[in-house]
Amino acid sequence: MAVIKLENVYFGYEKDKDVLSDINYEFDEGKIYAIVGRSGAGKTTLLSLLSGLASPTRGNIYFQDEDISKVNKYDYRSKMVGVVFQNFNLINNLTAAENIALSMDIAGSKEPSTAKKEKAYRLLESVNIPREESDRRVLKLSGGQQQRVAIARALSHDPQVILADEPTGNLDEQTQEEILQILKRLAEDGKCVIVVTHSPEVAKRADEIYRL
């Protein structure tokens, strides 16, 4: 069943200059999708549309058969999708754990803060961030560590769809492999995982490849 469906989607940042035109695609649950294409092809733009940060200039996007232009974008972003941004977009003066707890708060988590903290630590451990690093401000972490914090944050509110923009771009092979394992597990759990990548290695592991 299609979790996200794009129908004749057009988008341009400026008038009469479409970055994306007439996109028709369906993303199913339980699968990993790789979106590939040259730089500037519009991969990040597509993710913005899927994450509700941008709205198509024409055409429709459906999330579980519901037109997302009709749902609250903020609720959609905080609850339905988890996004790993190309440049991480973490809150710099918060620690790794706090960034994750904040994401849960925004998603409306009613858990006590100790439980949230505990969950944040576990999530960070799953992306190879040990506890002592979890309590450092993200600004003081390395690029690769920040990337993993961003991945952990995207998973923090247990979203139906995971959108990741170059999630392995800054990682060594071993960590990249670990991340791919995590994504694979998520797909096995029935999530829809959409990954933008330049890496043929990553694309190879996807169930389907969408070329822009």
Binding site: Y74, R77, S78, K79, F85, N89, I91, N92, I106, A107
Partner: peptide, 12 residues
């Protein structure tokens, strides 16, 4: 930037 991130994370 911080404001943008908060809103991107779905904070109203």
């Amino acid at each position: 930037y911080e404001i943008g991130v908060l809103m991107a994370m779905g904070m109203k």
